[in-house]
Amino acid sequence: MVELVLEIREMCKSFGALKATDGVSLDLRPSEIHALIGPNGAGKSTLMHQISGSIRQDSGTIRFLGEDITALGMPERVRLGLGRSFQISSLVPEFSVLRNVMLAIQARQGSSFRFFRPVLNDKSLTEPAMSALERVGLAKRANFLAAELSHGERRQLEIAIVLALGSKAFLFDEPMAGMGPEGSKALTAFLDGLRNEAPILLVEHDMDAVFALADRISVLVYGRIIASGKVADIRNDAEVRRAYLGEPV
């Protein structure tokens, strides 16, 4: 039995009468990409928010690297190594691209209560930040403001920040959204290699990317997981086809 990186059990969340998450159990094994798919409004993002800690679930537990993190907030979970990217890019608009990543480095070092030393020529911040930018191919844009980046570049910057955090598991919420075919292809190849660094829980609408990357797929519909398994099984699952892939059976 492999040690699970992330273990979600019986997660429930309601907004009024709407059951956004309805008894979801899910796990993430080392070095895998586990894709979470489902139609719009299925509750994928809500579930990702609960896993990352930005929304509190009504019931259910989460274990990460063997530790119960159910009661922890987002900053604590991030510090334990649960890194996330946002569906809608969430950056520091008036900071340069480099400074956006430097913030992640200083957070990782736990050094945000230093009041005097200037950050801009602090090599212990700039060098690791630059290498994270190089990995996602954004190094040449390092000195632009985050607000000046194109949509696709913002997605890349989000990934660079998560890399800089040295995360032990990645939660990616639609990283390909709005990237264009070229960008999607490049990011697919990048994520393919990234799984060896840490496993990825991936929410994605781009089915080509999902089928190319995923080791396992779980299908979420109306807050419930209706199917979970290997890629081939999900492709052939009749219920999934009806509910999601939109094909008559």
Partner: peptide
């Protein structure tokens, strides 16, 4: 949110 998402 960005601040919280880097763990601060």
């Amino acid at each position: 949110t960005r601040l919280a998402a880097v763990g601060i």
